[in-house]
Design a protein around this nucleic acid. Structure first.
Length: 110
DNA sequence: TGCCTGACGGGTA
DNA sequence: ATACCCGCCAGGC
């Protein structure tokens, strides 16, 4: 897999703030990865030194094989789960917008 | 060369 | 909620 992309994906994950989470799809979009699977692939191969606990599936659940430890770690930084599910509406990370839009964001609600 | 396998996601029934 | 289905794409064999 392209090393350039791997580093990009890793850097995005590093930017997720403590106490917030992001989905595999979010990471893929930001990193312009061709598929969310690439994100999982990166974590599987070399994710030990990343805040991997902040990466969840699109429905707020964890990948089954690491669910227990992941939820423990998240709980330790203030992210609570109900029935093994994290409420994304509450904890999902949105990248900070550096440049204010010069037009009202009305279009986002159409 | 194919075929199978995933730390995935969206849609439908 | 569960169960399929299909798209996705790098790797392993």
């Amino acid at each position: 897999m392209d090393e350039e992309l791997v580093e990009l994906i890793r850097s995005v994950i590093t930017r997720i703030p403590e106490g917030r989470v992001a989905t595999y799809g979010d990471i893929a979009d930001i990193a312009r990865a061709p598929s969310p699977r690439m994100v999982g692939k990166v974590l599987q191969e070399d994710g030990h030194d990343l805040p991997w606990q902040r990466v969840l599936r699109a429905n707020g659940t964890c990948a089954p094989h690491i669910a227990h430890e992941q939820l423990d770690r998240l709980r330790a930084e203030g992210v609570l789960a109900v029935d093994g599910k994290v409420d994304l509406r509450k904890y999902r990370w949105e990248e900070a917008v550096t440049e204010p839009a010069d037009e009202p964001q009305l279009g986002l609600f159409e």
